[in-house]
Amino acid sequence: MLKIDTISKIFDKGSLNEKEIFKDFSLEVKEGDFVTIIGSNGAGKSSLFNAIFGTFIPDEGHIYLDGEEITDVPSHKRARNIGYLFQDPRSGTAPNMTIEENLFLAGGDGGWLSVNQKKKTEEFVEKLKLLDMDLEKNLKKPVGLLSGGQRQALSLLMATYSKPKLLLLDEHTAALDPKTAEKVLALTDKIVNGDKLTCLMITHSMEMALNYGNRLIMMNDGKIIYDAEGEEKKNQTIDGLLKLFRDKDGAMMASDRMLLG
């Protein structure tokens, strides 16, 4: 499904700020996998997403999606197959445009000069009802006036509207209050399982990483230091993860945020 084949990337090569993000990094994700990714700050989790989405092009190596090489494909073309949700609820929507207009951009299926049709709006309303956030009653409201949770739920709907092959979630609930975060997470799980999406989710919460998905990856310093699937993941515990990390790295990665978050 997704295959990252020995990519390397050095930022600001030759300058004082030179920083090696990846060296011969490889990862393979099977169709239908729901992978949770944890790791300390600067471990390269978001960089991994940026490489997959094409925000930067690796210096070496190849990236394949569904058998097709996408290493040099620009982001907006990858977006047809990859949905991307960011931590900041403001990132995924256009604040000065209405809910309907935002959805039309994400889910409209006409040509460039097509206008939103009533039938399409009804479809939007149906989808919005599934979110259970009262968004369907505020179709004409600018997205900027919505709460963070509402916006993130809308972003989730937009990112998954055309059923992408791959969904990238970069701590998409970290900026929300616990109750809303839980709701958005439940929604995420529902959509990912319902549409059988392949999904990668970065999180800072070990509990979340253990509770969701069928595979868990721990990253540090641009490398995968732990990779558990199926039964092994199910039987893993927070203490186990912490111990693992100390053994592999020696340093204390377990910030309060990771334990409590």
Binding site: H76, Y84, A94, M97, L105
Partner: peptide
């Protein structure tokens, strides 16, 4: 309009 509002969102909408 979306480009003026949030270019990142435009890109995510494969535009």
């Amino acid at each position: 309009r979306a480009t003026g509002d949030n270019p990142r969102m435009v890109q995510s909408s494969s535009i």
